[in-house]
């Protein structure tokens, strides 16, 4: 079974990645720390995705959840929803996953650098943005003010407990969190994520990154319009059925764009004219 006939790469040939560490942040999510089996570093940019699979079960697109500035290993968070994610989440330390990537077009770091940055993450949308959060923390002096809004449905759905403790105490990030519905233990902010906007003053030049369920976009954009933030400076991370991840199979098309190679990160000005985007 030769993998590189005629010296050409096979776009679909996955690489083996060993599971070094796992953690269950919620009942349905599993956080993996991985390393390529050949020991090579995985080079990627925040916001890029991997196709992650188990042979025999298939592959799914997953955003990288750690920063390339933290070398050697990389993280993903997988929610059990279907056939492939179930098979992935049954894997334990010492097992392998098969990955392709990094794929796609991540956050445009050049247009973020030197500016205030606000990240608005809803639910599992925190995972792909964690890559950017860590990146900014590690290169803190290349950015202006750094704010992070994180919202979840209820306290049990909140991810990255350790990270959140760290962000709360950190002088590097102004961190705000909220839940749609509180429980008895919750003493923090209650309400949808847009309620966090009244807690801060933002300059119109702020660069904003949004990742979360489609319903959230609409409301966040309204707030940003009110603040006078232009849509060229708003970056959204979109979710589609990326199957091949290399711009061929057609499943992730949004009008004439392929989410997997034209995105998954788009500026809002790029997609607002696309009827099928949100």
């Amino acid at each position: 079974m030769s993998c590189e006939h005629h010296g050409h790469d096979n776009l679909f040939l996955p690489r083996e990645a060993r599971i070094l560490h796992t953690h269950r942040p919620t009942a349905s999510e599993k956080h993996f720390t991985l390393q390529l089996a050949d020991g090579a570093p995985l080079e990627f940019a925040p916001g890029q995705i991997l196709e992650v699979g188990v042979m025999g079960y298939g592959e799914i697109p997953i955003g990288l959840a750690s920063s390339p500035t933290r070398t050697g290993t990389f993280d993903i968070v997988v929610r059990t929803v279907g056939r492939v994610s179930t098979a992935i989440n049954e894997k334990e330390v010492g097992d392998s996953l098969w990955i392709r990537g990094p794929l796609g077009h991540g956050f445009d770091l050049d247009s973020l650098k030197g500016h205030d940055v606000l990240i608005v993450a809803g639910g599992i949308g925190l995972c792909p943005t964690r890559s950017l959060i860590q990146y900014i923390e590690d290169r803190r002096d290349e950015f202006g003010r750094f704010l992070l809004f994180y919202g979840a449905r209820d306290p049990l759905q909140l991810l990255f407990t350790e990270d959140r403790l760290h962000w709360r105490a950190s002088g590097d990030v102004e961190y705000f969190e909220t839940v749609d519905r509180a429980d008895a233990s919750w003493t923090g902010n209650v309400g949808v994520i847009t309620t966090l906007f009244k807690k801060v003053q933002l300059l119109p030049e702020t660069r904003v990154v949004i990742c979360g369920p489609p319903i959230m976009f609409e409301f966040v954009i309204k707030e940003l319009d009110r603040l006078g933030i232009v849509r060229e400076n708003i970056f959204v991370d979109l979710e589609r059925r990326m199957k091949c991840g290399v711009g061929k199979c057609g499943h992730c098309q949004i009008n004439d764009k392929y989410c997997c190679i034209d995105g998954p990160v788009f500026t809002f000005s790029e997609i607002q004219e696309l009827e099928e985007a949100i």
């Binding site: 025999g56 079960y57 056939r83 179930t86 098979a87 049954e90």
Partner: peptide, 8 residues
């Protein structure tokens, strides 16, 4: 079924 999953 033998692999603990479901045919689609």
């Amino acid at each position: 079924l033998l692999h603990g999953t479901e045919h689609v």
